[in-house]
Amino acid sequence: MKILVSVKRVIDYNVKVRVKSDNTDVDLANVKMALNPFCEIAVEEAVRLKEAGTASEVVVVSIGPKPCQEQIRTALALGADRGIQVETEEMPESLNVAKLLAKVIEEEQPGLVIMGKQAIDSDNNQTGQMLAALTDMPQGTFASEVKIDGDKVNVTREVDGGLQTVELNMPAIVTTDLRLNEPRYASLPNIMKAKRKPLDVKTPAELGVELKAHTKLLKVTPPAERQAGIKVASVDELVEKLKNEAKVL
């Protein structure tokens, strides 16, 4: 069985984000970029399924301008077999990404698609579900456990009240939550090896997808700052303030 993993290039999660002074967007100039953490978990899960003998090939795909090839190489160094970049001038909206991925799925015919539940830049949490609808596949979102059994996959999902398990017919789409696994570090020999693994570049036109704008970003502003309050010296003072000043007890 072939597994397709999609990955996104995003700002490194340790970097403090700053809004541009003209409020058009956040400032990404000279900022460290990385593989989206949820996507890294998706790559790890696919590689583990290959190591367990469940999967035969792991194909990683990323959509965006040329630099996203770095993140494809990272995924290849973690153990994916080959890469596909769909080259676009800018990062397309989720629905366009889902349409491009749907075409890649049509060509590659994977048995399972694994992707992150959301990217830490746009925080949309929607591409996986959109892709599932476009390909008419079942979905297991926010996965904390994935168990393949014949032509079905059981996915345990992190939901508001606890954990929910669903059984999906394959091919299916799984989106990862934080506790699915702990991704490995790429070893130096594997980083070297990754440079020689195949990486195809395609365009939206080749895939027959027309990118359409569905939203317009009007402005980006910093969030309202919360002012630091006061320090209290003791539990007595704290309880007194909460009762008489804040009136919340």
Partner: peptide, 23 residues
């Protein structure tokens, strides 16, 4: 935007060929 809403709503958007504005 609960885990249930987040789960099915993007499917609705894709089926209607429109964007979803999250959260």
């Amino acid at each position: 935007a609960t885990t249930s809403g987040k789960n099915f709503l993007p499917r609705v958007a894709a089926l209607l060929d429109v964007a979803q504005i999250s959260d």
